[in-house]
Design a protein around this nucleic acid. Structure first.
Lengths: 190, 190
DNA sequence: ACCTGAACACCGTTCAAGT
DNA sequence: ACCTGAACACCGTTCAAGT
């Protein structure tokens, strides 16, 4: 009757995150996760219905970290423009720190993508809020889509090694950020 | 000695592309590809060293199609600004037409990503060329990175279902394109 | 030259049995 | 309650043998 628990949900997710960063989500095996927490693979199915659900949990943990990083950058800034620039840099820093975990956020994983959708919106909520203060509620959504699309595109291309034609990538990031924030701020009517 | 070939490399890649669009690259099985071309799985290894190489070939075919779509849009336009807008729309249209194939282009697939890198640069070369005419060679690379990052980010977020807060997505695309092209065109010094 | 069945290794998942 | 070994299904890959 006792059957003491050898691990916890949180420990399993933490081990899975570490492994995902090392071998990628595709390469994640239930055996490897199990042995990392001192258990056999079948035991994991008492905690997660299947491998996809475990990867979902990894994605949720990653998006929560991203949210925390953005919120911290937001709090440390004074003006809306400073806050947006700081959040953009924090966003890129997060993606570079957790490239595989970041890659999970915007990958369509079929049925298993559903849970991350709301968290994703919550994670970038501070960006939307600052843009509302800058360009008004009406334009904030379009502006947020412009800024987050560029951010996501930039960092995922950077992570995929798609910037091959030379030039400094930090400069390209700063250039893009300046043009975008200027464009968003000064954009007038249709 | 005869052993007549039952299929061709091109037919295998075409079957693999169709299957990838249906089940995703992760779900692509060698058996399914083989049976689609009327052959048994082991025969595929005479044509491609392994499953990853076959997926590479799918990615190469997709990037070639993207290049063709961009080049066609470029040819049909008169001014640089028109050409850039037309290429942006063609880019998005391609991604919507071949979402899984598009997804292969900027996914880091480890050792197997290498071959697609040069093709990827070639595919967006028309964009770089038009930007050179618009803002000069010095700024063309930064401008291209800004534009392609936004394009990639926008379409991959759209495909991942990341635009959930309402509003028209076509409008958001048009808005982003306008702000970016204006920003790039009118951007002055540092 | 290209094709095949058989075999192997590996992995996700289930389940009956342990404590 | 949670853990386990054993078993099953499925798939990538190899290989010896066919034509």
């Amino acid at each position: 009757m006792p059957a003491v628990a050898k691990t916890t949900d949180a420990a399993v997710v933490a081990a899975a995150r570490t492994l995902v960063e090392r071998v990628g989500a595709d390469g994640l095996s239930m055996q490897a996760v199990a042995s990392a927490v001192g258990v056999r693979a079948p035991s994991l199915y008492k905690r997660f219905p299947d491998r996809g659900a475990l990867i979902d949990a990894v994605a949720e943990a990653a998006v929560a970290d991203l949210h925390a990083a953005l919120a911290a950058a937001d709090r440390a800034a004074r003006t809306p423009a400073e806050a947006l620039a700081a959040m953009a840099r924090a966003y890129r820093a997060f993606a570079r720190r957790s490239p595989k975990g970041y890659g999970l956020l915007f990958t369509d994983r079929g049925a298993h993508a559903a849970p991350a959708v709301d968290s994703r919106a919550a994670a970038v909520a501070p960006v939307l809020a600052r843009l509302s203060g800058l360009v008004g509620e009406q334009h904030a959504l379009s502006a947020a889509r412009l800024l987050t699309a560029w951010l996501h595109g930039f960092v995922s291309m950077e992570l995929a090694g798609a910037f091959r034609l030379g030039g400094d990538i930090d400069d390209a990031f700063a250039f893009g950020l300046t043009v975008l924030l200027d464009g968003i701020t000064h954009w007038r009517s249709a």
